[in-house]
């Protein structure tokens, strides 16, 4: 399971480019299937993983040391996910198909922006919020969106969160459909979330880890994998 990651120690991946990673956090469902908990969200690890990864990236919400403290107005959030909160969607879908009713609590948490509202409230982030998905490489779409928000000067920093849940039967069927893109990303086998705080290189005092959107799938995967493994190594 996840650990605390106080400082950056590891070398960054050798990816050329125009984004500086000034913080990262990783969260995952552990081997026993246990996910972090987040009040107000039930049954699915989607929102709890997102919140936990962000907390590990930014620190405690009320911390004056948080990199978003006093910068909430100029901070954007971009969330990427191939299948979104498929656990909640399928829970509700199965109940409706069986002639039952979906509990009202499932209503709001199927909406991807709901957990981002909690994060924005807790960290006082009032900048742009966007959510993206792409069949071949959601990570690249995520980094492209982040880079564009910085380039357009609509934000000074971007909290980028990539979250995928272990594929259930519908997601597996969707990705295996004959009509599906043969170059589509493989079905996720583990529920994970990675959060990166991104700035334009030179805007931040710490040595950046750098990447360059638009980036090929391999580089995107490497960046997020780096963040994840760095987190596993106790590195932030």
């Amino acid at each position: 399971m996840t650990t605390q990651h106080p400082t950056q120690k590891a070398a960054p991946p050798a990816v050329p480019g125009a984004l500086a990673v000034v913080g990262s956090g990783f969260s995952a469902v552990d081997g026993d299937g246990k996910a972090p908990r987040l009040p107000g969200f039930v049954a699915s690890p989607f929102a709890p993983l997102v919140y936990d990864a962000v907390r590990r990236c930014l620190g405690a919400p009320d911390s004056e040391d948080s990199p978003v403290a006093h910068r909430g107005e100029r901070t954007a959030i971009v969330l990427g996910s191939l299948a979104g909160d498929a656990v909640t969607a399928d829970l509700a879908g199965e109940k409706v198909a069986c002639g039952g009713v979906a509990e009202p609590v499932l209503f709001h948490q199927t909406v991807t922006t709901a957990v981002l509202g909690v994060i924005a409230r807790d960290y006082r982030i009032t900048g742009p919020v966007t959510c993206v998905s792409a069949v071949r490489d959601t990570g690249a779409a995520l980094l492209d969106s982040a880079a564009l928000l910085l380039e357009a000067q609509e934000a000074e920093q971007v909290l980028a969160v990539l979250v995928e849940l272990a594929a259930g039967p519908r997601t597996l069927a969707a990705l295996a459909a004959p009509t599906a893109d043969p170059l589509a990303a493989p079905a996720p086998h583990r529920s994970t979330a990675v959060a990166l705080l991104l700035r334009t290189p030179g805007d931040e005092p710490v040595a950046p880890r750098v990447c360059a959107p638009p980036v090929p799938a391999t580089a995107t995967a490497r960046l997020f994998a780096y963040a994840a493994t760095a987190a596993d190594r106790g590195v932030r």
Partner: peptide
């Protein structure tokens, strides 16, 4: 079932019309 994923809706549209890339779905409600 494939179309239940947002990215596949965009991919299907793009493939049908021969559009370029990126092909991105925005899912923020």
């Amino acid at each position: 079932t494939a179309q239940s994923l947002a990215g596949h809706v965009v991919e299907e549209l793009a493939t049908t019309l021969g559009l370029g890339r990126p092909r991105t779905a925005f899912t923020n409600a």
